[in-house]
Simulated assay, not measured.
Amino acid sequence: MRADLMFSSATVSGFVFGLGLIFSLGPQNLMLIRAGMLRNHPMAVASTGYVSEIALVAMGIGGLGTVLTQHPTLSGTLQLGCAGFLAWCGLRVLIRVSRASEAEVPTEARGSRFRAISLMLAVTWLNPLAWLEVMFLVGVFSSGYASEAQIGFAFGFLSASAIRFYGWSLAGVGLSSKLKLPAYRRKLDAVAGVVLISAAVVLSLNILNSV
């Protein structure tokens, strides 16, 4: 990429937009923090999410987000299915919290790399919030720029995304000592479950309101 494009207004705009998602308490960020705190292959989880982010950005710039908006029935069906998946994941987490004993060691800490990566893929690709925040909004915001400047916008956004994915994973690793106390493990699980269910409820309400 040319130096002038790297520091263009489009690149700066994409970077600022990406920074705004760093502190959003969504399923992806919670998964990153949890993987770090549990030392459950945090770098593999972060890399999986980041590569998926690159793919979503590419599809957003390529116009897939616009295509979905032109077919509301298909989009609504996909979103309802994804909302159901998020609610199911959240309920599973809360059920696990309710059954956990004081001395229980979380099974996720002994999870395989394949399981950790699969969970991140599911939270990303079956999470319509990720589609909205990344694929659709990036496509909309970058559409005001020329084709070359859109690449700069994507570069800026993905630079901020790298900070988000690897930053939250490393932050989780730094907080891993807290998991020596079962109470912290249960609190983290409870927050994750509530966020997943809340995301499903908000998404479902938005779909119903748009009908």
Rank of each mutant, 00 (worst) to 15 (best):
S118G: 12
A200Q: 06
F153L: 06
L74F: 14
Q150T: 01
S147H: 10
Q70L: 09
H71I: 10
R99M: 15
F114A: 11
A130H: 05
L158H: 03
W168Q: 10
L175M: 04
K187G: 08
Q70P: 00
G167Q: 02
S142Q: 09
V201T: 09
G90D: 03
R92C: 07
E104Q: 15
A146I: 08
V93A: 03
L203N: 00
A160L: 03
G81C: 08
F153N: 05
Y184T: 11
V195I: 02
A183C: 04
G152K: 00
G152M: 04
V97F: 02
L126C: 03
L203G: 05
I117K: 15
F153T: 01
T73R: 08
V191F: 15
M135S: 11
L158K: 05
A171T: 14
V97T: 12
A103N: 15
V202K: 05
L170I: 08
M120G: 06
A109C: 13
L196W: 15
S161V: 12
G90K: 01
G174R: 10
F165N: 03
A199M: 07
W125Y: 13
V173N: 01
A100Q: 12
L121S: 05
S118M: 14
G172W: 07
G174K: 00
G167M: 01
S169H: 06
S159Q: 07
I197S: 12
R96F: 11
V173H: 01
F155N: 09
Q150F: 08
A122F: 05
V201H: 15
S118D: 07
P106R: 12
H71E: 00
N127E: 01
R92E: 09
I95F: 09
V138M: 04
M135W: 10
E104H: 10
S198D: 06
R110F: 13
S143G: 14
A171Q: 04
Y166G: 01
A162G: 11
Y184C: 05
L137D: 14
F114D: 13
L158F: 07
L119W: 06
Y166L: 03
Q150H: 02
L80Y: 15
A146R: 15
G152D: 03
V105F: 04
A109G: 09
V134I: 13
R115D: 04
L158D: 08
A171H: 05
A190W: 15
R164N: 12
A162Y: 09
L132M: 11
L179C: 03
V140A: 04
L126H: 01
L126V: 00
I197C: 13
A109N: 14
V191H: 12
S147V: 09
S98N: 10
C89V: 15
A190S: 07
F136R: 13
G152T: 12
L121H: 06
F85G: 03
R96H: 14
L181M: 11
M135Y: 13
G156A: 01
D189Q: 06
M120R: 00
A154V: 13
D189E: 12
R113I: 02
R185Q: 06
G152W: 05
V123I: 05
A162W: 03
